[in-house]
């Protein structure tokens, strides 16, 4: 058992290239360890690397905790951060860890999808930046290469004027999403991104197109928007909810978030 404690990102990248398992907040990896599903022998801790904790303007370092995003992030991302686990989880868990785990239920993902964020990846050979929809490739699967670490999330230079996050779960705190969503509206242009309703975070493009053509949506327009979202999502039935409920809830939640954006 060996744990590397680098203070520079370059050292961490070298350890990753040599096969070490990255450890950020530990809120996912240690659950695997505690339940006997993972037994890493070489670990690289990312906790002491100042570079990935930088949070400047539109660039959020991968090591920025949910607690900091809750306090300093853009509105809908801060709203999402507040629903991540508990104070204990938000102090430890990071946006980079959330991305690397790539759970379909990741609370941070819909905002990144809704604003077309980019993910910056690094390896000993250099850096590359890819759009969110090239990063997520399946349930807990990303397009990261074996020697890569996430260095940062890069938001667009200007964010939509209005953006709102919402989450449905069986209780108010410490809960994994049944459905979570972000709706943005800027002038008429609307985006809607959802989590927990497909293998990866997804955009409801037909619903976006329909409502973006309407300057002052009527109840009938909102109902059609809701119907299209419910129609476009691809949920499954599992231990947390059913396909039918998720489909219904995705539409209702997206409509409510749009209504908030329109106020």
């Amino acid at each position: 058992m060996n744990v590397h404690h680098p203070t520079t990102f370059d050292e961490a990248l070298a350890a990753k290239a040599a096969g070490a398992v990255p450890l950020a907040g530990g809120t996912d990896l240690m659950v695997e360890v505690n339940f006997g599903h993972a037994r890493p022998t070489e670990v690289v801790s990312l906790r002491r690397i100042d570079e990935v904790k930088e949070f400047e303007g539109r660039r959020i370092g991968s090591g920025v905790s949910w607690r900091r995003i809750e306090n300093h992030g853009p509105r809908a991302l801060a709203q999402a951060a507040r629903t991540v686990g508990s104070p204990q989880i938000r102090n430890a868990g990071t946006i980079g860890g959330n991305l690397a785990t790539a759970s379909p239920a990741g609370d941070g993902h819909p905002f990144l999808a809704a604003v077309d964020a980019q993910i910056e990846l690094a390896s000993v050979d250099g850096r590359r930046t890819i759009p969110w929809d090239e990063f997520f490739v399946g349930v807990k699967k990303t397009s990261m290469a074996d020697d890569e670490l996430i260095s940062a999330v890069v938001l667009p230079d200007s964010l939509p004027e209005r953006h709102e996050f919402g989450k449905i779960g069986v209780r108010n705190a410490m809960v994994i999403s049944t459905v979570c969503a972000v709706v943005t509206r800027d002038d008429q242009r609307t985006t809607v991104a959802l989590g927990s309703v497909a293998p990866t975070p997804m955009r409801a493009r037909r619903a976006e197109e329909m409502i973006s053509a309407v300057s002052n949506p009527s109840d009938k327009d909102l109902a059609e928007f809701q119907r299209l979202v419910s129609d476009e999502v691809r949920p499954i039935t599992d231990h947390r909810s059913t396909e039918e409920y998720r489909r219904h809830a995705a539409g209702v939640l997206s409509r409510r978030l749009l209504e908030r954006c329109l106020r």
């Binding site: 907040g25 530990g26 240690m30 659950v31 670990v43």
Partner: peptide, 8 residues
């Protein structure tokens, strides 16, 4: 503390 790796 259950989510903190002792080695870290």
């Amino acid at each position: 503390s259950c989510l903190v790796m002792a080695g870290d």
